[in-house]
Amino acid sequence: MTDTPIIRFQNVSKRYGDLTVLDHFDFEVMSGEKVTLIGPSGSGKSTVLRILMTLEPVQEGVVELDGLSYRQPGRHGPFHASARHLHQIRSRVGMVFQNFNLFPHMSVLRNITEAPVAVLGLSKADARARAHELLEMVGLADKAQAFPAQLSGGQKQRVAIARALAMRPRVLLFDEPTSALDPELVGEVQEVIRRLAHEHDLTMLLVTHEMRFAREISDRVCFFDQGRIVEQGPPGEIMINPAQPRTRAFLGAYLPETSTG
């Protein structure tokens, strides 16, 4: 982890019609930092990831990644940015979705090689070699030729992680990566994310409801409520002894060891 912020939100507001999802939101993430976003549903955590992935535009404020501003002055359209500019931003970010979103008509191998070949210009042979390495890493070396429908939820999500890593992002976003999984499959996915967190200098943002897991892997935990960060800090502080009553009430429902008094 370094001291330069790679992600910066400054006074960002995001609305869907009358609903304010992010309200004058400020947020910074250092390069290499592992940050977990927790909080009740609808509090804006996932929206932060979706904005960073350029899946959602913002109405107000500044968002920057690696020094690149998301909006370009003088540009119109929902994103206020050219396709080329969005392309540049996306080349630095990857995302792992709650519902995996693997391409069902492609083999596991093709799921992983498609974008490196099409976007990074890798040769098929290089892309395949790299895909096999990544599959090895997520423990699915034998599944290269399988199709998504033949995999369990946990396996699908591990493929999705390999697919995102194949694009060599600097920032990897995890949007509730284990929420759609059967309980017995959560562990295998968490294990992969844990190894990534400990062994890579990748910047990671994780939205999750798995509090113990959040505590294990993150440098910092941010508690969201109503479009703002109510409280943040090292997991040891936030999760054991939260200062804010709202944080305490929320965590009390998940972690018995959080002091609720």
Partner: peptide, 27 residues
């Protein structure tokens, strides 16, 4: 074609044309 497929294509930085060709039209 589910929205998630299009989002996954965007997250992998596929161009719009490529997303149509490789992801959306085949499905």
């Amino acid at each position: 074609v589910p929205r998630g497929q299009i989002e996954a294509a965007a997250a992998l930085n596929l161009s719009r044309a490529r997303a149509y060709r490789s992801i959306i039209i085949p499905q």
